[in-house]
Structure formats: structure tokens, C-alpha cells
Nucleic acid binder design. Structure first.
Lengths: 198, 198
DNA sequence: CGCCTAGTTGAACAATATCAAAAATAGTGG
DNA sequence: CCACTATTTTTGATATTGTTCAACTAGGCG
């Protein structure tokens, strides 16, 4: 069972999952973050999700992956080979249930994303996105609603189905109307009382 | 084990899964179709998916459901109680793997939907939607690309993140430029050579 | 036939995309 | 630390697209 499970450092920009290729491992993210990207035939790209510590990346078994997962920052992952997982599930039947539950979480996240994309205005999408990050606990410890965005504006725009100019404008609009207290690069501070915004 | 698994008729409009309530059964759709709807706090609705024969509906265990599944037409489902599923999985360990695979399919469908919603123009979204229906085999048997839409225009619009007027206009535009051969109510005939459309 | 709902069309308006340029930020080497 | 470059982000002006509100049309059913 040696070498079937190991910690691994991943550099910024490196992919732990590549679109069109089967995934040899299941990766559990320990630290850092990733973007999930699908590039379409015409070259356009859609960011289908972001991955944070505790989430996992990898297709089941030897299926070919429909996404690429790229590190947004230096990251640490735990790799599990499929053979190791098979052995584990034989010896500890309960583990598979947890994987099912995990898959449910992935599905739930995807469904939330669908709802987000269904919203009409750019500002709604941006606020929903920021709130989901805050709810997931990406905030800076010790503060209320200060959060760091590990991804670029382009990534966020591709995630929200907007052009990056539209995203940028939405951010400044939200700052002007008070929903966002401050923006400086990738640090964003949300207002305390989101109810004020309508 | 009696009464833990049964076929059931579902009338049009009836829900086999209700947002906010736990699901007592796992339903496998035998015939008919469903829409998955999430109603948000402000009253707006997002159709997050459609369910066709072979698909299944129901949350794992006793978790509360984030969607409502409503029959688009008279339908037949197979109901499995959770206790029955637990017993099955003890006696036939392989069955849980299939459920995992199923969950993957659900996730894949959600991800495809995300990509669809990321597309820019209304016409692109509509053609992608129609193609996905055709690919799923909703076509009328014996014909090439004739398909029946069991859902209303409003359902499609809510699925695509469009207003129904925009959807309607996109459909007529697509008919004018030849991507759609004919539209009559809920019957739509796609052109043979989608490559012609750009 | 008349009513009711679903679907389409029209015109004015609001939002987003596009193209272009300026400003801010991050690196790099002196 | 500063200057220089490359990249990212923001802003501006305009064209395109989608929304809104309203009227109109087409079917389904008593």
C-alpha cells in the first residue's frame, strides 16, 4: 500500500486534472485553491467552479475528465490512487458512503451555481458570488466580511457568465451603493448589513 | 420487504419531491418527464433541470430537498424506500457503486447546464438546449431530428435564464435562419446539418 | 361560439458586450 | 529603492442584445 497515498505540492498554474484525460488519482485539497475550467470547441472557456480546502478533485475510476483543475496559488493536496480507494472500500465499507455524500456536495454546489447563473443582473450575480465565498469561510480570520479572492477577475467573469469589463463595472457599482465597503485588488470587504442593498 | 418498492402513477403537475421537505423515497422515472424547480426567496424561479425516463429523483437519506420535481405529463415512477435501499446495499454491495455512478451523471448534467448558461446569446442557449434534448433521445422514433418538448416555453426560459419573450424570439430567429426547420407548438424539427448555422 | 391560457410579435427602454484606452498593480533588474 | 516592463484592472464611448410592458394571435375546451 506504499506510494498509493501521498501529499503533494502543486505550483500555481499547474493542473491536477486535465480536460479530456482520465484522472489517475483522487485529490483532496489540503491548502490553496483551484479553478475548474472547461474549454469549448470554439475556444471560449467556462469556469464551472472553484475548489477549496476540504473539497476533492478527480473523476470516478478511469473516466475521462470534462474539466481542467488549475491551482490558483501554491497548494497542497493529498493524492489517493484508485487502487488504494478500492482496497479501502473493501476493508472499511463506510468510506464509500462518505464519498457518496461528497458527490452530493459537489452536485449541490453545481446546482447553486446554476441558480446563480439564472439571476438577471450582473450586480446580483457578483453579490451572490461574494456571499457564497464569505459563507464558505474564505474570509480573513478575525474579521467579519473581509475576504481574499484567490482568482482573477477573468476567472470570476467566466464563472458568472459575464465579460470581465461588466464584472469590473458591477464591482465599482456595488462599492458606490454601499454593498461593498472597499476593494483593493483581490481583497474585498462586504458591508455588514446586506439587507440595505436591494 | 413488501410495500417498500412499488410502481406509482403520477399525474401532470404533481410533485414527487418538494423543496424544503425531506424525500422519503428514491424515485426512478419509468415514463413521462419532470422539471426540477427551485423557488428563491424573492419569488423568482429557476428551473435547474429536466428529468426523463431512466433518471432518478430524490435526496440521499433524510436530507431536506432543495428542489421541487413536478411532472410535466402523466408519468410512471418506481419508488424505493430508504430502508429498502439500505437492505439492498447490504445484500448486494455492487448496487451502491451504481448509485455513485448515477450521482456522477447528475453532476455531469448539472455541469453541462452550467456551460450552457455561460453561453452569451439567447440563440446559442436555445440551440444547445434543443441539441441536448435530441442527443438524449427525446426525438420522435423513426425520425431524425424531430422532437417533442414536454415542457412549456416558460419552463425552457427559466431553464436557460431568459425571459419567455426572448426565448420565443430566439426560436423564430432560428427558424428564419434555418437552424430549425419547423415549429408547431411543442413539436420542433431541427435542421439536418447544424454546421450550416454560425 | 366565447372564454381562457399559451405563445408570438411590437416598440421603447435598460443592460450587457464590444472596442479602445487609461490607470493601477506586480515583477524584474539595475 | 527606483525605474522599466508586462500584466491586470478599471474606465469610456458605442453597438448590440435582452428586458419590459403591451397588444395581438393561436389553440383547447366548456
Amino acid at each position: 500500500m506504499a506510494q498509493t497515498m501521498a501529499h503533494h505540492h502543486v505550483r500555481e498554474g499547474d493542473a491536477i486534472l486535465t480536460q479530456g484525460e482520465p484522472s489517475r488519482y483522487l485529490h483532496i485539497v489540503i491548502s490553496g485553491s483551484y479553478r475548474l475550467v472547461r474549454v469549448m470547441d470554439d475556444g471560449r472557456r467556462q469556469v464551472t467552479g472553484f475548489v477549496f480546502p476540504g473539497d476533492y478533485v478527480g473523476t470516478g475510476a478511469a473516466r475521462t475528465s470534462s474539466h481542467t483543475a488549475e491551482a490558483l496559488e501554491p497548494s497542497l493536496v493529498c493524492k489517493f490512487s484508485h487502487s488504494f480507494l478500492d482496497e479501502m472500500s473493501e476493508r472499511f465499507p463506510g468510506i464509500k458512503d462518505r464519498l457518496i455524500a461528497r458527490g452530493d456536495t459537489e452536485l449541490t454546489k453545481a446546482q447553486d451555481h446554476i441558480v446563480l447563473l439564472g439571476k438577471q443582473t450582473a450586480e446580483e450575480k457578483v453579490i451572490s458570488f461574494l456571499n457564497s465565498l464569505a459563507a464558505r469561510g474564505n474570509g480573513v480570520p478575525g474579521e467579519g466580511a473581509r475576504l481574499y479572492l484567490p482568482m482573477s477577475r477573468q476567472d470570476i467573469a467566466d464563472y458568472l457568465g459575464l465579460r470581465l469589463e461588466t464584472l469590473s463595472r458591477a464591482l465599482t457599482t456595488l462599492k458606490k451603493n454601499g454593498a461593498i465597503t472597499s476593494i483593493s485588488g483581490r481583497m474585498v470587504e462586504l458591508a455588514e448589513h446586506p439587507a440595505l442593498v436591494e
